[in-house]
Design a binder for these strands. Structure first.
Lengths: 203, 203
DNA sequence: TTCGAATGTAGGCGGTGCCAACAATGCTGT
DNA sequence: ACAGCATTGTTGGCACCGCCTACATTCGAA
């Protein structure tokens, strides 16, 4: 059995899985110390490679951040799709989805911020765009379904999805910013959805 | 009349108003190149002082960012208070406020991000907290007023304010992230507010 | 088996934030 | 008026960063 991490001798010249190791380390650092503490050189050190090695897998620091965002979208997409139960009645269905989103956004606040960072405007890797589509798709499906059943007012489904998503994202943002305790955000999910569906005005 | 910016000779030893100059320059850079391009040394260069001079006014880069956020809150607070007309009926009043918020968030996207950055948890200067209170106060007042008149359902006004603010912030966030064109966000204000007040369900 | 492509290494460049020692200036009390 | 102190600015240095280039090793396909 080889020794643990610091193995300067027996370590093979090629790491074998540097890219994944870097991404994993980056996500860990991101979670623990925030995006500001992310350093390619430090990641290289943790992975036991030279400071320039990461450059072989990510042309840029931004490229690594983009890859990280992609991982985030994947995970969020899974979470949302896993939480969606088309058999549920509208309000319950939406609540479940909302709870999943808020849970993710609380557990992965820094990662989420990365995903929303509008740095990919110049190139905007299509992979990323596709990931976004998949994510909002989960929500849009619920809205569209409900609309067909007449459970939701008419109108461009994308428009309605936007407002719904905005409310969720806003709450997530407040929770991340400390304006709202994370538990309060999660516990309030049901109420938030209710308000969204029924409005603020008395009926 | 002394020469313009690069005046290495006649410039007095003391700048006279470095703090303001730095803040102004920082905001300019923030708007034009983003927070990532902010550098104390560069700011010092632009102000025509040595690279360590900013340290006399901001102990930290973070301290400058906090001061910048404070400026932002001030300006946002003014904008909101200026846009609020208590004489208006609820929906119009709320729409005006929402439009002001969205306009600010579009014109000052980077600054707004700074304001929401949860970096001030450790110390959380009370000045900043007060500024936040003032800002949300504008919204809370509208909600509370409407509640008293029975135009809005009962419930903790802070709770309702939260949801309202979240929706706005979410839309602003989408606009900043490029998911929604700025004009679309502004033009849709009326509809957003209407949806918020009347809900997604048919009446 | 050989040779090019992938991957990792070593070192250097300009830039950054922060710190300490020092210099010029402004202000305040006598 | 001016001595002395606090404020503000300067110089230089440290450690770190991202990125680049030249070089080394290994892998894989022709």
């Amino acid at each position: 059995m080889p020794a643990s991490r610091p193995t300067p001798e027996s370590r093979p010249y090629h790491h074998g899985d540097l890219r994944s190791t870097l991404l994993a380390g980056a996500e860990r650092t991101l979670r623990e110390k925030g995006v500001g503490a992310l350093s390619l050189r430090e990641l290289a050190r943790e992975a036991g490679v030279s400071h320039a090695a990461p450059g072989r897998h990510f042309k840029d620091k931004q490229a690594l951040l983009n890859a990280l965002a992609l991982v985030g979208y994947d995970r969020l997409g899974q979470a949302l799709e896993g939480a969606d139960d088309p058999a549920l009645p509208l309000e319950k269905r939406l609540t479940a989805l909302a709870r999943a989103y808020l849970a993710f956004s609380i557990d992965n606040a820094e990662l989420l911020e990365l995903m929303y960072a509008r740095k990919h405007e110049p190139d905007a890797s299509e992979q990323l765009a596709a990931a976004v589509d998949r994510t909002v798709g989960s929500l849009e499906r619920v809205i569209a379904d409900a609309q067909e059943r007449g459970e939701i007012i008419a109108g461009d489904p994308q428009h309605l999805t936007l407002v719904t998503g905005a409310t969720l994202q806003g709450i997530a943002s407040f929770a991340a910013g400390g304006m709202l305790a994370p538990e309060a955000a999660l516990d309030g999910t049901e109420e938030f959805v209710h308000l969204l569906l029924h409005g603020l005005k008395p009926r």
